[in-house]
Design a binder for these strands. Structure first.
Length: 313
RNA sequence: GGCGACGUGGCCAAGUGGUAAGGCAGAGGCCUGCAAAGCCUUCAUCCCCAGUUCGAAUCUGGGCGUCGCCU
């Protein structure tokens, strides 16, 4: 249990699926309330990943930003690190007498920042246990490793599908730290929010959003996504574990390496983004704290006005 | 006009007499540190008509359509 963050005013939290207009609204709100934006985006964290992540270009920034360009794509990052970063930002911004606008689409990062998530092992990202079980998985298969988990920690195993190898490994990691996945999972529903916040969700009709996504992907290509990826590859992009999984990057890498045509790559980026947006929708849908605004129209001024008058009193 | 091939869910595609594989997309869902990741669930009666047969997506005939070649 962590102590609640003492902020004089709640963090304004702009959430929603990709391409719904979060960035524009967050900046508009920050301007109005004299705030600073804290980005909660697992990929905008990375330096040099700009076009493909939809990062707002420096020349368009009208307020201070945090949570962008924190580390190189080759460096591992995690929700636990973001938790510390975000809370430090909230504190600092408070100290400066300003307000925080948290903006992002990475659901886990948002919850890590605002709710009482307790990550064992602090900030250490790499864990030898992960490596060991990954190897075991290759040798013996998913079911065998899951069975191992079931024999020593049946409660946790019961919560994890055998095919969900990532989480099976995570359960072993937790065991090695004397924690149980099941115990943490139990507390999930009653996790307390320890940072005061107002949640504004941007909702866009899914078919409309998909069209918007398609247009945005085409624009990214026109804006030079391919060159951006080439540069990253020169800088050892492949060494990263998280960054190379980013939509828009893995596909272009495949095209550059001749495993895909560029047309196929672009098509896959669009589809992957549609699916990502869908997952974001399911994640946010169940969070009762979110107050939804229809963002079918992309009129930022009007959205900001409505947010201020309807949701921020 | 002739000859040949083909016609299975939104797309790709198995199945050649025994009651519709699979993949992709879509939809729904899960979630405490790789989360733009990972995982789960779900989704057709086989172009139409007539026939053969206990039984047809699978065989026969006709129609329609598509593609290819030829004139």
């Amino acid at each position: 249990m962590s102590a609640p963050l003492a902020l004089s005013q709640p963090v304004i939290c702009v959430v929603g699926a990709t391409a719904t207009g979060k960035t524009a609204l967050a900046q508009a709100l920050a301007e109005i309330i004299d705030g600073e934006v804290v980005s909660a985006d697992s990929m905008q964290i990375y330096r040099g990943m700009d076009i493909g992540t939809g990062k707002i270009p420096p020349c368009e920034r009208t307020v201070p930003y945090h949570g962008l360009d924190i580390c190189d794509p080759g460096t591992p990052y995690s929700a636990a690190l973001f938790q510390i970063l975000a809370r430090t930002c909230f504190d600092d911004i408070e100290t400066r007498g300003k307000r925080s606008v948290l903006c992002g689409g990475t659901g886990l990062y948002l919850r890590a920042a605002l709710d009482d998530y307790d990550f064992p092992s602090g900030t250490q990202v790499e864990n030898p246990v992960r490596e060991r079980y990954a190897r075991l998985l290759e040798q013996r298969g998913a079911l065998a490793v899951w069975n191992m988990l079931a024999s020593i920690d049946p409660a946790s195993a019961a919560l994890i599908h055998p095919n969900n190898t990532r989480r099976v490994i995570r359960a072993f990691e937790l065991l090695s730290e004397g924690r149980r996945y099941a115990t943490l999972h139990e507390g999930l529903a009653q996790l307390e929010q320890i940072v005061p916040a107002i949640f504004i969700g941007l909702a866009v009709d899914p078919p409309l959003l998909n069209k918007r996504i398609d247009r945005r992907v085409d624009a990214m290509i026109e804006d030079g996504l391919v060159d951006e990826v080439k540069n990253l590859l020169d800088q050892g992009f492949h060494d990263g574990v998280t960054a190379p999984q980013a939509i828009g990057y893995k596909e272009i890498v495949a095209a550059l390496e001749g495993r895909l045509s560029f047309d196929e790559a672009i098509e896959r980026i669009k589809i992957a983004t549609h699916r990502y947006a869908k997952r974001q929708r399911t994640w946010f849908r169940k969070d009762a704290r979110i107050q939804w605004l229809c963002a079918d129209s992309q009129d930022t001024e009007q959205l900001a006005y409505r947010a201020c008058t309807e949701l921020l009193q």
